[in-house]
């Protein structure tokens, strides 16, 4: 079977909104002022859109076989020294997959049931170690008892890359306020690897990169213009993982 390698890049829907506004202007006689104010507003919001890239590799385009009653577990890698794949992100991806009628076991429930073999120190990092672990009848029995068919390993983090500007807030008897401007860039990089627990083989992998800039404008009241970088990474990864297990 021919392996499938996909590369997708997309922005949040603001780009298409700008296109639609310009098209509408050319088809109607609305005043220029309305168009320009809309474009300025959109331009401001466009600064808050994240650019997300997804790379995927899997043996075939067919959905991965997942029978009724079989479950998937999404686990975070936590053995790196300088970062940790956070639990909120794992829950976010799990919830995205649950929405597609895929049985997803909670991460902590699975880790506790098989303690201590999926702790950061002991979790298998590759298939040879998983194969050895599954030779233990107690571990194999617990995996089968919970009908865990696939493990999805998530590894990555969200980091603030660059920040600039300054904002200061003050409060006094006559009132208070914030003045200034600050901006920061965030980058989310996550990799997902799917392991088949029955045939003990890798079923595919995904990588998502999401990047965007957020702003905080201090004009008496602080006005945040936040780019949902991590949330975009979660929804993109979750949707793509869903397509691994279901017909699109």
């Amino acid at each position: 079977m021919k392996p499938t390698i996909n590369h997708k890049q997309f922005k949040t829907p603001i780009e298409s909104l700008v296109k639609r506004l310009i098209e509408r202007k050319s088809n109607s006689n609305n005043s220029h002022t309305k168009l320009y104010s809309s474009l300025i507003m959109v331009a401001l919001l466009a600064g808050c859109s994240a650019t997300t890239t997804i790379d995927e590799y899997r043996p075939s385009d067919e959905p991965i076989e997942l029978n009724a009653g079989e479950n998937v577990v999404v686990l975070g890698r936590r053995d790196a020294g300088h970062y940790e794949t956070d639990r909120d992100f794992i829950n976010c991806v799990s919830n995205r997959m649950r929405g597609a009628d895929i049985g997803v076991l909670p991460e902590q429930q699975f880790i506790d049931s098989i303690y201590p073999w999926f702790e950061p120190r002991t979790a298998p990092k590759g298939l040879p170690r998983l194969k050895r672990l599954m030779q233990d009848p107690l571990v194999k029995g617990q995996v089968e008892k919970q009908s865990v068919r696939y493990l999805v390993w998530l590894d990555g983090s969200t980091q603030t890359l660059d920040q600039g500007g300054s904002i200061s807030c003050a409060i006094g008897p006559g009132g208070g306020g914030c003045f200034g401007f600050a901006q920061w860039d965030k980058l989310s990089v996550y990799e997902a690897i799917v392991w088949d627990m029955t045939n003990l083989q890798e079923m595919g992998r995904l990588r998502v990169d999401s990047e965007g800039t957020s702003y905080l404008i201090g004009a008496v009241a602080p006005i945040p213009l936040l780019t949902p970088v991590k949330s975009d990474a979660c929804s993109s990864l979750g949707n793509q993982l869903k397509s691994f297990f279901t017909e699109q």
Partner: peptide
Amino acid sequence: IIALRDAGAKLML
């Protein structure tokens, strides 16, 4: 809590 769980893992391993 994670360090204590790691102590259990280290002991078993």
